[in-house]
Simulated assay, not measured.
Amino acid sequence: MTSETITADAAGTWKLGDLTVNRIGLGAMRLTGSAAFHHGTPSDRERSIAVLRRAVELGVNHIDTAAFYFSALRSANELINSALSPYADDLVVVTKVGPYRDYSGEWGTSARPDELRGHVEENLRQLGRDHLDVVNLRRMRQDSIAEHFGALAELREAGLIRHLGISGVEARHLAEAQAIAPVVCVQNRFGLDHRDPDTDDLLRLCGEQDVAFVPFYAVAGEAGPQGATTAHDDELLAVARAHGVSPAQVRIAWTLHQGPHVLSIPGTGNPDHLAENVAAGAVRLTEEELATLNGLQLKAG
Rank of each mutant, 00 (worst) to 15 (best):
D102S: 10
Q209T: 15
L16F: 05
D272F: 02
A238N: 10
M1R: 09
N277M: 02
V219F: 01
T286G: 09
R204S: 08
A67S: 07
A248P: 09
A10T: 12
L256M: 13
W254D: 15
Y103A: 14
G33P: 13
S104P: 12
A300G: 14
V134A: 00
L164E: 14
D234F: 04
A171H: 05
R129T: 10
D233Q: 13
T95N: 02
H38C: 13
P260E: 15
G269P: 07
Y217C: 09
D89I: 14
Q142C: 15
V92P: 00
G244P: 06
R125W: 00
W14R: 14
R112G: 15
G207S: 09
E4A: 14
E46Q: 14
I265Q: 06
H257F: 05
G281Y: 06
S144D: 14
G118N: 12
R23I: 08
R195P: 10
F149N: 06
D233A: 13
G128A: 06
L19I: 12
A83H: 02
P215T: 13
V94M: 02
G168S: 13
H62D: 05
H257D: 14
A36H: 06
V283L: 06
G301Y: 04
A280W: 00
L31P: 03
Y69V: 12
P215V: 12
T32C: 03
H194Q: 15
